[in-house]
Design a protein around this nucleic acid. Structure first.
Lengths: 105, 105
DNA sequence: GGCTATTATCGTAAATCGACGATGAACGAT
DNA sequence: ATCGTTCATCGTCGATTTACGATAATAGCC
């Protein structure tokens, strides 16, 4: 089970359009930092920062290859987050249906 | 299809442990603001702010009932976000396997 | 009209984020 | 050893977030 803090960290990292774009690129194929810089209209330093955020939150892996670093999507982590969402949805099924808040009619 | 901005907005809203706790409560049952304040160790104004963020990003609904507002999980939105994650995972299946970055061996 | 209960909003201060250019670090090639 | 390439880190700026208490707004009840 992922802790709330861990889920929050992953979600926070996902919470930026540029990082979503990066993840989509990495879902298609592994990329070097430079590949991503070439695809997106932002500075190299900014891409590097986003990659750092994604790596620290567990979204991506980074395999060193000489001076380059080949980034790839960490599908395991994606699957874990998906499971968290499924749990949110599923909690309803097993709960006593019709339960309400303290005052709802 | 959800836009990147929309996904980012939802993810950003999820990116806080307190809001995850609130969503878990709402996944169990609809709640008034006061119900949530009673469960969490933070001020009423802070809870209200978090609820606003969750509502604006589409995570929850708020049904007015007199002076109270009954909040509930928007399961449709949760499902949409789950679908986005599934797309990230699934993109691999249909891609030419073994495709790599510009220089990976 | 007043009173209570419930929730939203305001104002503020500390912390974090996102972007950039400039610089540093690591590695292969000459 | 010195390049050139590739990526990370530093320092900085304005903007945003998060938390709080205090205060306003809304709806029902007397």
């Amino acid at each position: 089970m992922m802790t709330d803090d861990r889920v929050a960290a992953m979600a926070k990292a996902l919470g930026h359009p540029t990082r979503i774009a990066i993840l989509k690129l990495l879902a298609d194929r592994p990329c070097l930092c430079g590949d991503i810089v070439a695809e997106l209209p932002i500075a190299q330093s900014t891409v590097s920062q986003h990659l750092k955020v994604l790596k620290e939150s567990g979204w991506i892996t980074g395999d060193v290859d000489g001076p380059r670093i080949c980034y790839g999507l960490n599908r395991e982590a994606v699957g874990e987050l998906r499971f968290v969402l499924e749990q949110l949805l599923g909690q309803w099924e097993s709960a006593p249906h019709g339960s309400t808040c303290s005052s709802c009619t």
